[in-house]
Simulated assay, not measured.
Amino acid sequence: MVTVQVLFFAKSRELTGCSQTQLTTPSLTTGRALLEAIVNAHPELGLIKDNLILSVNLSYISLTDNLSLSEGDEIACICLSFSVDLVLITPEPLDESKVRSYVSDNTAGAISIFIGTTRNHFNGKKVLKLEYEAYTAMAVKQLQEICNDARLKWSLCKMAAVHRIGEVPVGQPSVMVAISSEHRHDAISAVSYVIDAIKASTTIWKKEVYEDGEGQWKANKECKWLNEDKGAP
């Protein structure tokens, strides 16, 4: 085991509340394991983990690099983007005003919001509620990856992608996507992309519960696993 110096800058410094610290770690490790060790020591960095890269003794490293660390080596924790997207899976009712407030930005000229709600019917049956279940840890990671992809495609200010789990009665929202941008085209296009990607690829499932007491687990038509099974291109 060796003790290394870890330096924080910009957003990582703000979140940790310090500019440097020490970390004891195996001398033989990988870039990924080193990043995990830093985040485990400072859980608040989980908010920007996917936007962090590391340097060792003034040289950038990859997560797949095999490292041989020495006592006193200098590790820098560098954030590629200062924007922290709100990604959340929660059993609590969703609050549109809070989501909208999160993406508000004085540099933005537009805010686009999608709200998915529980409708009261399906194929002639009366729907009472939806029940959502998620593999939460994986779904949160997928939401962040979707937001990262959207940022590569459009010029965006702030983003929020939140999904409710558990029971969602008729008329209540189950998912919200809110995005601000300097120009409206970027926000509108990105919101459409993000909600389609959520329906296609996240580990979130829903069950429709009907007035007669019956229930049915439903797959979104965008679900990529369903389309792959059907041989869709």
Rank of each mutant, 00 (worst) to 15 (best):
C77D: 10
I78S: 14
C79T: 14
L80K: 15
S81G: 03
S83E: 15
V84W: 13
L86F: 03
V87K: 15
S97Q: 06
V103S: 01
V103K: 00
S104N: 00
S104W: 00
N106V: 11
T107F: 13
A108S: 11
A110M: 05
I111M: 05
T117N: 11
T117Q: 09
T117A: 00
T118S: 14
N120E: 09
F122G: 02
K129T: 09
E131M: 12
E131A: 08
E131Q: 11
E133P: 10
A134C: 01
Y135A: 10
T136D: 05
T136E: 13
A137C: 07
K141H: 13
Q142Y: 08
L143M: 00
Q144P: 05
C147W: 08
C147F: 02
C147L: 04
K153P: 09
W154Y: 15
L156G: 03
M159R: 10
A161C: 13
V162H: 09
V162G: 07
H163W: 06
H163P: 01
R164G: 04
V168L: 07
P169A: 04
G171D: 07
P173A: 06
V175H: 06
V175S: 03
M176H: 10
M176C: 12
I179T: 07
I179P: 13
S180W: 13
E182C: 12
H183F: 05
A187S: 15
A187T: 15
I188H: 11
I188S: 10
S189F: 10
A190E: 10
V191Y: 03
S192T: 07
S192P: 06
S192V: 01
I195H: 04
D196M: 06
A197E: 15
K199S: 15
S201H: 06
T202C: 05
I204N: 03
